Simulated scan of single mutants.
Amino acid sequence: MRPLPAVRPATREDREAIAAIYNAALAERASTFETRPRTLEDIDAWLGQRHPVLVAEEASRVIAYASTSPYSPRECYAGIADFSIYVAPEARGRNVGQHVLQALLEAAEAAGFHKLTSRVFATNVRSRALLGRLGFREVGVHEKHAPLDGVWHDIVVVEKLLPTNVR
């Protein structure tokens, strides 16, 4: 069994790997409604902000990432962050996703967030199981949330409170 990869904050040097991982998932059409591949400039905009972006690295190669982004532009929701997690196809099934997401929970809590939230395709049972193992709560289903390649998909809304910052 391989040891778990090192997890660290993402840097500009990781942009190409992050884009490649995301774009591989985009091509699979099972986890995002986006259809435009991510560019290095897209990834660059995520970095150096209040919202943590982490990578999992194995043998000097990025094999997964987890990121947070603003939930809403409204100030009253500044303590909530959306999150995403993507694992390179060749690294799936080895607990890499759980490892990097656990680190993201810690980083988000350290950054002062009190809640993480996301939306997951209802058919993405592996991601839903992972989120359940880490204590995320499924709070509802948005039916026919958006079409992808002409097919409407339901999404499951998930959330997790970060107890240190719940006042």
Rank of each mutant, 00 (worst) to 15 (best):
T11I: 00
V139G: 05
A6H: 13
R2P: 13
A17D: 07
V151D: 04
E143M: 00
P163T: 12
E75N: 03
N95Y: 10
A6K: 03
A66S: 11
L148N: 00
R167Q: 08
V166L: 11
L101T: 10
F113H: 11
E34H: 04
A59P: 01
Q49Y: 04
S72R: 14
A108G: 08
A107T: 07
A111G: 06
D44G: 13
A103W: 11
K144N: 14
K144F: 08
S31T: 14
A107G: 10
T32D: 04
Q102R: 15
R12S: 08
Y71K: 03
D82I: 03
V87D: 06
E109C: 02
E57M: 05
G93N: 09
R2H: 14
G97V: 02
L161R: 11
R119H: 12
I18S: 02
K144T: 06
R128C: 03
L104D: 04
V158A: 05
Y65L: 11
E106V: 10
P89G: 04
L105V: 09
E28L: 15
R50E: 06
H142R: 12
N165T: 04
E16S: 08
D149Q: 12
A129Q: 13
A91S: 15
R12H: 05
I43H: 10
V100R: 09
L26Y: 01
Y86M: 03
R92G: 10
E41F: 02
D82F: 01
A27Y: 12
E58G: 02
R92K: 08
Y86T: 09
L26I: 13
A78L: 00
L131C: 07
A78V: 00
V7K: 06
R36P: 00
I80Y: 04
A107P: 07
E106S: 11
V7Y: 05
L130G: 05
L4A: 15
Y71N: 12
G97S: 01
R119W: 01
A81F: 06
R61V: 13
V120K: 09
P5I: 06
V156A: 01
A81K: 12
T68P: 05
H114G: 08
N95Q: 14
V166N: 01
A45I: 02
E58K: 08
H99Q: 01
S72A: 09
R36Y: 03
P3N: 09
L54N: 11
G93I: 11
Q102M: 05
R126I: 11
L104H: 03
R36S: 13
E75G: 03
I21T: 10
G135P: 08
Y71P: 02
A17T: 04
F136Q: 04
E13W: 04
G48F: 03
L54D: 10
I155S: 00
R126C: 00
D14G: 07
R15Y: 02
K144H: 14
T68W: 06
L162V: 06
A146V: 03
V125P: 00
A27R: 15
A111Q: 05
